[in-house]
Simulated scan of single mutants.
Amino acid sequence: MSKKPKLHYFNGRGKMESIRWLLAAAGVEFEESFLETRDQFEALFRDGTLLFQKVPMVEIDGMKLVQTMAILQYIAAKYNLYGNDLQERLLIDMYVEGTTDLMEIIMSQLFMQQEDKERQTNVIVRKVKKHYFPVYEKILRDHHQNFLVGNQFSWADVQLLEAILMAEEICVDVLSDFSCLQDFKERISEIPTIKAFLQPGSQRKPQPDDKYVETVRAVLQMYYKVAFTFCN
């Protein structure tokens, strides 16, 4: 029996959360090792585990993988969530890059001072409603299919749902003008593996709090405004 993937990161969302989502969507159980001290972090890159001295890091199939996008692409391909051909894979990559950009904007808010956070909230909501969600709404409306690519469940669907839920935490009615995305959210949330991950007690992480921020700062020895960029 193969070993479960082991995820090395902080006990919070950050860059690892999309990896957790994708593994959960694939029905793959995984273990986690949480970074809580600077010494733990330094031990990983002293032995060469972290090629670029950054996390996330995932142990899977006898390898120690770093760089978030590379990890996600490997998992998506391994568990048949990466399309049927090169063109579908390209579309998935494009859509995932878009949701990644959005989620990074949301994540960056966490490391801002309070007054900056309040201003950034308005910026995020505006970008979501005017720039990002109209794209996915049009894709779903134009092709009249249940999923973003190839009318089959893929990594792109998983990450779009994650982005939608993150945006709703900032603005509860952010989907009010996007009927296709509303239907998409309900439909994808009912997929059994996704539904299980959304239940209390799963390995999905809650909204980051001050304790998480302070842990990241202490481990990475970074300021609020740049800490999140060192986890990719």
Rank of each mutant, 00 (worst) to 15 (best):
D173A: 11
L22I: 05
S202H: 11
L220Y: 00
G62D: 07
G62F: 06
L148G: 02
E186S: 15
V213Y: 08
E31H: 06
T99V: 11
L165P: 10
V58F: 05
L110W: 15
Y74L: 06
N80L: 09
L148P: 05
F228D: 02
S154E: 09
F178G: 02
R13H: 03
N151A: 01
V213D: 02
N11G: 03
F184K: 00
N84K: 15
N232M: 10
V55D: 00
P134D: 14
R46C: 06
P134R: 08
L50G: 00
M107H: 11
I19V: 10
I194S: 06
D116I: 09
E169W: 06
L110P: 04
L220C: 00
M112H: 15
G12F: 03
Q203P: 04
V58Q: 09
L23T: 01
F197Q: 00
T193V: 06
R204S: 04
Y9G: 01
Y223C: 13
N151M: 03
Q182W: 05
H131T: 15
K211I: 14
Q152M: 10
G83D: 10
I19E: 03
M1L: 04
L148I: 11
M166A: 12
V58R: 01
L23D: 02
E190F: 10
E137V: 05
A70I: 03
Y82R: 04
V96H: 07
K205A: 03
L140D: 05
P206I: 01
S154P: 08
A167S: 09
I164M: 07
T68D: 01
D173K: 13
E190G: 08
F133R: 05
F133E: 04
H144L: 11
E169G: 14
R20G: 00
I19D: 02
R119Y: 12
I188N: 01
M112L: 13
Q73M: 14
P5A: 04
T49I: 03
A156S: 09
N11V: 01
M112E: 13
R126V: 04
L161D: 07
L175C: 08
A43E: 12
L160S: 05
Y132T: 10
A26E: 00
Q53M: 04
F153I: 02
L161T: 01
Y136R: 06
N151G: 01
F34D: 02
Q159T: 15
E97N: 14
A156D: 07
D210T: 09
K127P: 11
T229D: 10
A25T: 07
V226T: 15
K64S: 11
Q203R: 11
